[in-house]
Simulated assay, not measured.
Amino acid sequence: MTSDVWLPVRPDRFERLPEGFDYHFWDGAPDFPADPARCVFYGVPYLKGQEIAVRPLPEMTAVRVVQTLTAGIDDMLPALPGLPPGVRLCNARGVHEASTAELALALTLASLRGIPGFVRAQDAGMWRSGFHPALADKSVLIVGYGAIGSAIEDRLTPFECARVARVARSARTTPRGPVHPLADLPALLPDADVVILSTPLTDATRGLVGADFLSRMKDGALLVNVARGAVVDTKSLLAEVETGRLCAALDVTDPEPLPAGHPLWHAPGVLISPHAGGPTSAFLPRAMRLLKEQLVRFAADEPLANVVATSD
């Protein structure tokens, strides 16, 4: 009897998937495409929410691999203890770096150069010129220097920043310079004109950007969040932006989706995009390539890429 593979992309869109499996398409529809108990490789539907993503897992008694199409796996981690021992949870490293880094730069430039104000003026048919800061000669701090953080620095390079500092969970050296540990943030924040968050959401980073973190940022600095909304304490951020001391560009928020009437919508100096870092034209080809490569490894009993956790 063959085993099942559930994919969030229709199987007929792939070329030459490994033989020996029955492939089923499931994008979070109310009805399952097959018996979950036969699934050995579960490709998680993309951006359908935690409730849908974990819904079939209690019945997937034979599953061996859970492959997300997101860089963060915080939605899936709570379900890991309920899975059979040895299930590998894999993230989508390699899928979102380009598009998320693009958006980080777009949000930074739009905020600094006053693009939201230009759009509002255009809507009103008004010519409003004025002085705006440039990214050139600014000091940038990247908090979360994994694949996405590195891709952000790739795109910062042509903009003639005065300095780029890097922070990650632990210290290391790179060809571009040192990566500082989280413990160095208090010393680095006061020098940064732009702080870009690209860190995963973990116990160590949940609420990392709270009142103390924000108070150490220099007057007029810009906070850019392309990580997860819960990395930032929303109440503390509101206290800073409502006075005009800081500005923010947020692709993610807490809560998310941001409800109508929430004060962040109308806070001065705040630009909000609706978690748009990943879903672009760059997503699907990279996602399909990752899924196929993982299935080839799985079929050949070879080590998988991007394993971030294994169930006990």
Rank of each mutant, 00 (worst) to 15 (best):
S3H: 11
R10I: 10
R10P: 13
R10M: 11
P11E: 13
F14P: 08
Y23W: 11
Y23S: 12
W26M: 10
D27L: 09
A34P: 05
D35L: 03
D35K: 04
P36A: 10
G43R: 00
V44P: 02
P56R: 03
L57E: 03
T61S: 09
T61D: 06
R64L: 00
L69K: 02
I73A: 11
L77I: 12
L77M: 11
L80F: 07
L83F: 05
P85M: 00
P85A: 02
L89H: 00
V95T: 04
A110V: 03
P116K: 04
W127C: 05
F131T: 12
H132R: 11
G144I: 09
Y145R: 03
G146D: 14
L156I: 04
T157S: 15
C161G: 12
C161P: 07
V167Q: 01
S170A: 08
T173I: 09
T173W: 10
T174I: 03
P178S: 02
L182D: 03
D191G: 14
V195C: 06
S198L: 07
T202A: 06
D203C: 06
D203V: 08
G207I: 03
M217S: 10
G229Y: 14
A230C: 13
L238N: 06
G244K: 13
G244L: 09
V252F: 08
G261E: 01
G261H: 01
P268R: 05
V270R: 01
I272M: 07
H275L: 08
G278V: 12
R286C: 12
Q294N: 15
R297Q: 15
R297K: 15
F298N: 01
A300K: 14
L304D: 10
L304H: 10
